[in-house]
């Protein structure tokens, strides 16, 4: 079986600070991977290196059989690698429907194969907004949204790119119990449609419910990777989380 995402020996430094070191990570097609780690352990840096927002100095990233090192973020998105941002970053001057139009125009249509135009784009935007429960606000601006609606828009925009792999970077932080369940259901449904999902999260309840496999980052290194139930019992992981 060939992995969809293959990260090998990835290293990243900021000046003298080593943010990531020798990260190896494989994600199989259709898998649900949880990625956890304390604050500052390099989770978001890893996402940024995988998605091309940052360039890693060492190691390589292969996605869907293509070496993506050196490719820009938009080229990786077009290959089918989408991410949501930890703090939602909507396009503030565009309506919700128009927010989703951007990845449709620039990722889906630019990918070749099927291409949407005119009414079909709007239909698709409304369909996606419907999936996250925002259809009624399709023609509002992002500033009218609540915190959870903003997270949903962020996910919907990543979904609009029709990715093979979706990386959800702390999509649930600060949400209520019920809201966490809502996003969780959304991600599991998406996975059911065949999208591979990496979930980066602090909320252990959600991580454990979601993940088929769990990887743990601590201080820029991957210290565990495997069955979620075993990983959380791993003494090293326990020590990293609870402190000595």
């Amino acid at each position: 079986m060939t992995a969809l995402l293959h990260v090998e020996g990835l290293g990243k430094r900021f000046g003298g600070f080593v943010a990531l070191q020798e990260i190896d990570l494989e994600v199989q097609p259709g898998e649900r991977l949880g990625l956890i780690g304390p604050n500052g352990s390099g989770k978001s840096t890893l996402v940024n290196c995988i998605c091309g927002t940052l360039n890693n100095e060492q190691g390589g990233v292969r996605f869907d059989g293509t070496a993506v090192n050196g490719l820009t973020a938009h080229q990786r998105t077009r290959l089918g690698l989408a991410r949501s941002f930890q703090l939602p970053r909507p396009f503030g001057s565009l309506t919700l429907a128009e927010n989703l139009r951007i990845p449709i125009l620039y990722a889906v249509n630019a990918r070749g194969g099927h291409s949407l135009s005119g009414q079909a784009i709007l239909t698709r935007c409304l369909e996606l907004l419907g999936q996250v429960g925002l259809a009624e606000k399709a023609h509002r601006l992002p500033r009218d949204l609540t915190q959870i609606e903003m997270r949903k828009l962020e996910l919907a925009r990543a979904m609009a790119a029709e990715p093979k792999l979706l990386i959800a970077d702390e999509a649930m932080a600060g949400l209520s119990h019920a809201e966490v369940d809502e996003i969780l259901a959304l991600l599991i449904r998406l996975n059911g449609q065949g999208v591979t999902v990496i979930m980066i999260e602090h909320i252990m309840r959600a991580v454990m419910a979601f993940s088929q496999r769990l990887a743990v980052l601590v201080a820029g290194r991957k210290i565990a990777d495997g069955d979620p139930k075993q990983v959380v019992r791993d003494p090293e992981v326990v020590r990293a989380y609870l402190g000595e």
Binding site: T77, F85, R89, A158
Partner: peptide, 10 residues
């Protein structure tokens, strides 16, 4: 509106 988000959207 947001250049990084634009890149991420392709």
């Amino acid at each position: 509106d947001d250049e990084a988000a634009a890149e991420a959207s392709g």
